[in-house]
Design a protein around this nucleic acid. Structure first.
Lengths: 126, 126
DNA sequence: CATATAATTCAATCCAGATTGAACTATATG
DNA sequence: CATATAGTTCAATCTGGATTGAATTATATG
């Protein structure tokens, strides 16, 4: 047979990484805030009620997952602005929609006694 | 103001629960297998290379999150068949698509020096 | 240069939850 | 009833990763 039914498809590997990244409540909240236009560590920290080093940690995880981008302020380079990576957001959407597509649902594979018996047999049995 | 920008929207709470449930690699794999039509604990265990009690644990978590359903075999009630809950799958799709909708992206909110200065001022500064 | 600020890095601690092994439940079959 | 099977429950252990506090970097300003 061509493709293993048992293995998780390769496309799903990237999705798994993204899901792990987004499953953290504070990180999901950060994405929400970034989408709303909030951008620097300090403001994110205020909104989350979290210290700057913790915010920094979560921002790094999000950045390493390719979900957000960073950019220094042109006038005062101490400030760093974060934003959602639009391409990644679209890829995430597509990947998720493909994996959890209800149309993917296949009929049950025969496994237990009820499936093994033919209709005629199961009729006799009853 | 009507709604807090800081708080995670209520709709996102359910999504957060689902994401935490699906972020576990074996559970994501189980969803994949169920979508492919695999259904009983034993076959899932074979595919995952995991003992039945561990499979059972993950199935419970998925069930408690409302993502899967269970049904006993009509002929031999020792067998239990699991399947993805189609309604939950659709709700998950909708919820995720709404939260990560690229169209949600708002312009950056003023925060640092570059944003605070008016165009004229920043022009002078340069 | 000295001081302040925005943010990161580092090391230590803590904790939720995955994993494991053994006992248990429920059902079927001889 | 005794034995086997499919699966669950329970308690203990282990581990990845969130959290915390202190030190560090980079930049700006007087």
């Amino acid at each position: 047979m061509s493709h293993e039914l048992n293995a998780l498809p390769a496309d799903a590997e990237q999705l798994a990484v993204w899901l792990k990244t987004l499953a953290e409540p504070k990180r999901l909240h950060i994405i929400h805030l970034l989408l709303e236009g909030v951008q620097c560590n300090c403001e994110l920290g205020d909104a989350l009620g979290a210290p700057p080093n913790l915010v920094s940690h979560h921002l790094r995880v999000l950045h390493e997952a390719g979900l957000i981008e960073m950019e220094r302020d042109a006038l005062d380079a101490r400030w760093i602005y974060y934003s959602v990576n639009p391409e990644a957001l679209r890829a995430l959407q597509d990947s998720f929609a493909a994996f959890f597509d209800p149309a993917r649902m296949k009929p049950r594979r025969v496994c237990g006694p009820a499936g093994v018996l033919k209709p005629a047999e199961s009729a006799l049995k009853v």
